[in-house]
Design a binder for these strands. Structure first.
Lengths: 343, 343
DNA sequence: CTCATCGTTGTTCACGTTCACAAGGGTGAG
DNA sequence: CTCACCCTTGTGAACGTGAACAACGATGAG
């Protein structure tokens, strides 16, 4: 354990500001000024510092900076089911935008359904000293828990909650659902089912609301929606159930995966889509155009959503921007819908 | 801007160890010992500290800890195309496992195809002072760039690179491809095409190798594989191209999305899957069971992969475990394959 | 020529934690 | 009774950075 020679490298430690300063023949504060490009530095000095940084492969120590400024420059994302296309695309976009703004991103996933799992996830984010929180694809319970924790953080949610406390930003799910429903009605369908998302999910509720709103607006009789779990698997079994009665000519599924499962069940019953039954989905995942038949669905611009989300979060608390936080979805008509022919 | 009263709260600052220490009537060091549960603390003292922490809602300051220990307890993930199911599932699993071990995770995404983009992504991770790096779904170029940067970090890649420098862990892509190919041969197919992934991708190469190996092993003639881009869209157009000649009875696609596109093109040509043409995919994404027809494919256990990945990274450098880093994939036979009937 | 001012750079401290070491009190052996 | 030792706790320094303030030289006005 005696002192070792260590000819060139002084320590195995990463170079610090002081090392750069020494090499450049200035004080560490001057180096700091160069890094944060403060005004009033002589060009020649600045260049010398930059050269030294380059030569030493210097990297600012984020922890030290965070300590002294008490700013972590980190954004937290709280999400559920991040293997689904929508959340994944949103996370991606948020991360890109955050990085561009010099922020890092950490994510935490809600594992189960109990609220302890939610608390744990938020705890992990708080441990990271996040400066802002984005909530993706949430369930109502998430918000209740969040509200109960009384966080002192800017929070943006990617789905409108209806509550006023936090700012939200979302694709207008209700309008999307109305577009889908109206499309079916205009094709001549009179008996339309809705295969909804799970109870308690904000998005599922909004889509269901949109469906019921439009049906009522057009004086159409409605039946109670089926509650699903977003998976193709569930769509398949729901389809088999529904086909026992078959008192409908169209189904609006709350997402593309369930629509896929539905179509599977319908084909199994030797019925035709859209001849016997029309199907509309929601999300426009990349695969939807190649389902059989290609799926009519509602497109959400996840990337745009992510970008605006970060802008909202980092743009500070400039209110007023709060209410253009709604992005209009568009209907994409493909082969899975048509007039109710075989009846 | 005058001083405000602030009756109760001394500062708006978060409570620190000293605050806890003062409240509990001990020194900050004792608090530190409680947090890191060091031995030799009287139970009564410990409890008093815990109570104070609870009362003040104390949270350790990660930045301060990182500064003094020079350990960030953060793992970096470098990924490409994280909206795809495979990478997304892997990231999820890695994050869960890392969190369980008390580590945080940051991800960086390779945006384009130039190596500057790769360098930038790694730079962002290094700014976070990551202690280990996981590389997911990489292209060869990623590794070249990585090697050029000579990082002093433990690196684990989720796909075998063939190079010895870094430790890798992977589903055995070659074996998976052989399973798929053998299945087609055993069904009686003699002319089989391979729709491969993009050039330069490790996984794509491995699957192609597996395909060619098995074909050669069984003395089957092979044609040059088609190179795709993983998307259903490409699969669709590739299918249209291939069907102009139609000198084959089966196609092995390098992933499920391309297989989906292929089946779309085949139906458009009024041909039957599997009657006219059999299709095998790769990945077993959750939707694959509900494609039409349900897709025969190769299942990879992404979750297991992620778990082992973190174990490998954090388990330190205990060599010897290095070579059980291969997870066997399994073939899942569904409706998209059958004997070549209509010929 | 003198003094104020501005542009540039340096000095010192604080952030919240862990580490190395020291100090205090109790216990047991001789 | 005394001393050594262990258990428990405290003290001071250090990590790398940014903020506040000070200091220095040059410049320009009077």
């Amino acid at each position: 354990m005696a002192d070792e020679p260590e000819p060139v490298a002084k320590k195995s430690r990463a170079p610090s500001m002081h090392d750069v300063a020494r090499l450049a023949g200035v004080s560490h504060q001057t180096v700091s000024r160069v890094i944060n490009d403060a005004p009033n530095i002589r060009d020649e000095t600045k260049q010398r510092v930059l050269d030294s940084m380059e030569q030493l492969q210097y990297r600012p120590n984020r922890a030290a900076r965070a300590l002294v400024t008490s700013r972590s420059r980190t954004i937290g994302i709280l999400s559920a089911s991040r293997t689904n296309y929508g959340p994944a695309a949103s996370i991606q976009a948020i991360e890109d935008a955050a990085n561009a703004a010099g922020y890092a991103v950490t994510t935490a996933n809600i594992q189960g359904f109990e609220s302890t799992s939610i608390v744990r996830a938020i705890d992990r984010l708080l441990d990271q000293a996040i400066e802002g929180l984005v909530v993706i694809a949430p369930q109502r319970r998430t918000f209740d828990t969040l509200a109960g924790m009384a966080l002192r953080l800017p929070i943006v949610t990617l789905q409108s909650t209806g509550t006023d406390g936090d700012r939200s930003l979302s694709v207008d799910q209700i309008m999307g659902a109305r577009l889908a429903t109206r499309h079916l009605i205009e094709l001549g369908h009179r008996s339309i089912y809705h295969l909804a998302g799970p109870q308690d999910w904000i998005e599922a509720e909004a889509r269901m609301t949109g469906f019921l709103d439009e049906m009522n607006a057009q004086d159409m009789p409605t039946t109670a929606p089926f509650l699903g779990d977003w998976t193709a698997e569930f769509g398949y079994f729901a389809g088999r159930e529904l086909l026992r009665v078959r008192d409908f000519t169209a189904i609006f599924a709350a997402n593309d995966q369930m629509a896929l499962g539905l179509m599977h069940a319908i084909r199994d019953a030797r019925l035709d889509v859209p001849g016997d039954i029309s199907i509309v989905g929601f999300d426009d995942i990349p695969d939807a155009a190649h389902f059989w038949p290609p799926l009519t669905t509602v497109r959400q611009d996840f990337a745009e959503l992510g970008r605006r989300c970060v802008a909202l979060l980092l743009g500070g608390l400039d209110a007023g921007e709060q209410y253009d936080g709604i992005i209009a979805p568009t209907l994409v008509v493909r082969g899975s819908t048509g007039p109710p022919l075989n009846r």
